[in-house]
Design a protein around this nucleic acid. Structure first.
Lengths: 134, 134
DNA sequence: CTTGACCTTCCCGTGACTGGAAGCCCCATA
DNA sequence: TATGGGGCTTCCAGTCACGGGAAGGTCAAG
């Protein structure tokens, strides 16, 4: 397979696939003309990475997951540890975003949003954090 | 005020303050020796940006908010529009993260996580998206 | 033979900083 | 007066995960 075909199959832009080769996630063979020749294993790895990335795993985490993926002697505990750590990060991000959402929703709700300059949102941003006394 | 003092007061690293000057968010005066001389207005702007950033506003959005902040003839509707748009982005991010969280939590829960190589997490990552048939 | 689609490498830009090097400046102490 | 340590300055490079675009080689069809 050429890069366009594997890109379509894996759901990744060709640019991204070249980048993944650059950083060593895949090592496709080369034809005489210099074109990359992707095999089934390359495609599996790319699709695997695409799904891991869509779950928010970083490239480094994908690297580790790929290594486990193709290690027949892996312990599922190692995979789970990675996933659990990542899940914790996701939950931390959600919590942070929910904090922002709550604060921002309060400010938005307090703002009449008309032609007048008086604005609780700007006022809130110019004051120390809302939870603090005084 | 020198940069260290204003950094402490605004809750921002000195490096970040220099960067904010670079990109034009503030324009502190200079002393004869080349040191930045921050005034009250600089400090207000920096503290404002710090809080806006902590609510997830991008630098570009902060730029717009700062302009409104110091425009006495602003319409609060303009501020609110910015905030509402940003709130929508935050909610979209939360939704995306919750999708990841749900998928990942399912996979984690299905994985026994011991010494055996069999692993539903890796299996899930190697299969087309879970919702699809076949 | 030409056209146009595909492939290659290479380099720059993104956002919002962070780290580090090299070099002034200022104050206090010996 | 020398010196030492901290604070300040600029500039350059790196981060993360790509994306855009240029310059040029390759291939299949007409």
């Amino acid at each position: 397979m050429n890069i366009a075909e594997v890109a379509k199959a894996a759901g990744l832009p060709a640019k991204t696939i070249r980048y993944y080769e650059d950083i060593g996630l895949i090592q496709p063979a080369r034809r005489d003309n210099g074109y990359r020749a992707f095999g089934q294993n390359d495609l599996h790895r790319l699709a695997f990475v695409a799904r891991a990335r869509s779950l928010g795993f970083s490239i480094q985490e994908c690297r580790a997951l790929l290594a486990l993926y193709q290690d027949r002697a892996r312990a599922s505990g190692d995979v789970k540890a990675l996933a659990v750590a990542h899940l914790a990060q996701i939950r931390a991000k959600i919590a942070a975003l929910r904090g922002m959402e709550a604060t921002l929703a309060d400010l938005v709700q307090a703002c009449h949003g008309d032609q007048r300059p008086d604005c609780p949102i700007l006022h809130g941003l110019s004051q120390p954090a809302s939870g603090d006394a005084q």
